[in-house]
C-alpha cells in the first residue's frame, strides 16, 4: 500500500473498481458486518477493528495487472507477470533471440480486446535481425491467441544487445 490509510496500494488503475473494492470504507463495512455476526464481547471491540483492518490491507494487496476483454465482451484482469511470461516464452523459443523487457498494453475496441506488445531483445552475434524479428512477431502473435485468447495489434521489437554463445 502506498499510504497507511488510503487503501490504494501500488495498484495499476487506482481510479477503477479495484480502488473502490479495496477502499478502507468498504473494508470497514465488511469488518463491521463480520464483527456484528458473532457479537464480540466488550473486551474484543476496543481497537480491534483497526488491527483487523491493518492485517486485511496487507492480505488483499494485488499486484499490477493488465485489463483485457474477451471476444464475448467479458472484462477481466490478469497479472502482468502471467502475460509477460507468455510473450517471454514465445520470444525465447526463437533461436538466437533472448527476451529482455516485455510490455503488453490493452488495445482494440472495446478496450482490451486486443493488445499492443513492445519488447526489447538481445540477439546472438551473426543473427540477421529483420527476418528473425518477423519470426519473433509470428511466435508472439500465435502465443497470445493460443494461450491468452487475445490478438496482438502491433508487436514492436528493439534489439538492444548482442551476445556471443
Amino acid at each position: 500500500m502506498s499510504g497507511p490509510n488510503d487503501g490504494s496500494g501500488d495498484l495499476p488503475d487506482p481510479g477503477e473498481v479495484e480502488l473502490e473494492w479495496n477502499s478502507d470504507s468498504h473494508l470497514r463495512d465488511v469488518i463491521d458486518e463480520y464483527m456484528d455476526s458473532f457479537e464480540p464481547g466488550p473486551d474484543d471491540t476496543a481497537g480491534v477493528r483497526e488491527r483487523i483492518l491493518k492485517i486485511v490491507r496487507e492480505d488483499i494487496r494485488r499486484g499490477p495487472a493488465t485489463r483485457l476483454t474477451t471476444e464475448r465482451g467479458n472484462p477481466f484482469a490478469i497479472a502482468d507477470a502471467s502475460v509477460r511470461s507468455i510473450v517471454r516464452d514465445a520470444v525465447d523459443a526463437v533461436d538466437g533471440i533472448r527476451a529482455r523487457s516485455v510490455e503488453v498494453t490493452p488495445a482494440g475496441e472495446p478496450q482490451g480486446s486486443a493488445a499492443e506488445v513492445s519488447l526489447t531483445v538481445a540477439m546472438r552475434a551473426g543473427v540477421s535481425f529483420t527476418p528473425t524479428a518477423e519470426v519473433v512477431r509470428t511466435k508472439v502473435a500465435e502465443a497470445l491467441v493460443s494461450q491468452l485468447g487475445i490478438p496482438a495489434t502491433t508487436i514492436d521489437i528493439v534489439a538492444e544487445d548482442v551476445y556471443v554463445d
Binding site: 473494492w21 473494508l27 465488511v30 469488518i31 463480520y34 464483527m35 458473532f38 464480540p40 474484543d44 480491534v48 488491527r51 483487523i52 492485517i55 486485511v56 492480505d59 488483499i60
Partner: peptide, 18 residues
C-alpha cells in the same frame, strides 16, 4: 484466492484468537 470476507474472518480470528 481467498475472498475478502474470508480474509476478514481470518484476520479477526488472528486478532481475537478465535
Amino acid at each position: 484466492a481467498p475472498s475478502l470476507r474470508y480474509i476478514v474472518a481470518t484476520a479477526t480470528a488472528r486478532v481475537l484468537r478465535r
